[in-house]
Simulated scan of single mutants.
Amino acid sequence: MQREQENRKVLKIGLTVAVLMVGFGFALVPLYDIICDITGLNGKTGVLAAQDVRETAVDHTVVVQFDGTVNSDLPWSFRPKQFSMEVVPGKLYHTEYIAKNISTDDVTGQAVPSVAPNEASIYFSKTECFCFTEQLLASGEEKNMPVTFIVSADIPKDIDVLTLSYTFFNKNRMTTAEKQQAGNANHEKI
């Protein structure tokens, strides 16, 4: 009888710990997003609507470099149309990337963006981006993928170069961590 009570107690404790661990795991996602938004970690960028852009007088420029890669599971080629652009902070700019499906099958990809250096990410906002949604390319299809962005006029003058980088993943073969990161990118509209 005593052993049965001890077993029930251990079972209750074990179940309670398991439920708390699962709950903690789910609580980490919004906590991670909040920390990334505050610190600019993980290349998270701000969100800005095109109508919210204000022209401001700025006496310096910033070089924005563009980079594009694909995960090895994605049979695409992907690259920026231009590799860098000199921008005036506070003004809206537009660029494009080119993606091509080089396989014999239709493939859905998801882009995960990042900005480097990390401290510059809070000054970089996209108003339009292909990374906001999944991209389906038919076999052999090539597509121009637009990005409209602004570098905040508040960017410190010591940050004179930043890099906007995208990695495309095969949506059907993404790991749980990659899906989480892509979901955060879609949720954040970065």
Rank of each mutant, 00 (worst) to 15 (best):
M1D: 10
Q2V: 14
Q2Y: 14
K9D: 11
K9F: 02
L15F: 09
L15Q: 14
T16S: 15
A18N: 09
V19F: 07
L20A: 12
V22C: 04
G23T: 01
F26I: 06
Y32Q: 09
Y32C: 02
D33R: 11
I35F: 08
C36Q: 08
C36D: 13
I38D: 08
T39H: 02
L41D: 08
G43W: 09
G43L: 10
T45F: 10
L48N: 07
L48Y: 12
A49Q: 13
T56R: 14
V58K: 00
V58F: 09
T61P: 07
V64K: 08
D67S: 06
G68V: 01
R79F: 01
R79V: 05
K81R: 10
M85Y: 07
V88R: 06
H94E: 15
T95S: 06
T95L: 03
S103D: 05
T104S: 15
D105I: 04
D105F: 01
D105K: 14
V112D: 14
N118H: 13
E119R: 15
S121K: 01
S121N: 07
Y123V: 10
Y123L: 02
Y123S: 08
F124T: 12
K126Y: 02
T133N: 14
T133P: 05
E134R: 14
P146M: 11
P146K: 06
V147E: 08
I150A: 01
V151M: 04
V151P: 00
I155M: 01
I155A: 03
P156T: 00
D158C: 03
D160E: 03
D160Q: 01
L162W: 00
Y166Q: 00
Y166L: 00
T167H: 00
R173D: 11
E178W: 02
Q181N: 11
